[in-house]
C-alpha cells in the first residue's frame, strides 16, 4: 500500500515544484507570484511526504530535496516579489484626494491608450 511505502508521488511533485519555483522566481512580478504558489504547494507536498516516510521509519532523498528546493524557491520568490517600497506614494493618501485620484486615473487611462 502507498501508505506503507511513503508518499513517493508527493515527494516527486514537491521536487518538480521546488525546481520550478527556484527557476521562475527571478523573472518578474507575475512569475514571482506563481513561484511563491509553486513553492508553497511544493513545501506542503514535501512535508506530507516527509511525514509519511517518518511514520514508517524511513528516509527519502527526493522528499528532502523537494523540501530544500521549495524552501529556497519560496525565499527567492518572496525576496524578488515583495517589496514594501512598491507601495508608492500614489497609494491611499492620494486615493483619498479625489482630485489627485482623478488625475492619476486619467494617467492610467492615457497610458492604456
Amino acid at each position: 500500500m502507498e501508505q506503507q511505502q511513503g508518499k513517493k508521488g508527493f515527494a516527486i511533485a514537491s521536487l518538480v515544484l521546488g525546481i520550478v519555483a527556484c527557476v521562475i522566481s527571478w523573472w518578474g512580478l507575475v512569475l514571482g507570484i506563481i513561484g511563491i504558489i509553486c513553492a508553497v504547494i511544493g513545501l506542503i507536498l514535501a512535508i506530507q511526504a516527509q511525514k509519511s516516510y517518518k511514520a514508517i521509519g524511513q528516509k527519502n532523498g527526493v522528499a528532502t530535496a523537494g523540501l530544500v528546493l521549495s524552501i529556497i524557491g519560496l525565499i527567492l520568490s518572496i525576496i524578488g516579489t515583495i517589496a514594501c517600497g512598491i507601495v508608492c506614494a500614489a497609494g491611499t493618501a492620494i486615493a483619498n484626494d479625489s482630485r489627485i485620484a482623478n488625475q492619476l486615473l486619467d494617467q492610467i487611462s492615457s497610458s492604456v491608450n
Binding site: W26, I75, I78, I79, G80, T81, I82, A83, C84, G85
Partner: peptide, 11 residues
C-alpha cells in the same frame, strides 16, 4: 535583478 530589501528582511 533588483532585489527589495524589504523582501529580504521578511524572509
Amino acid at each position: 535583478k533588483q532585489i527589495g530589501v524589504y523582501g529580504i528582511m521578511a524572509a
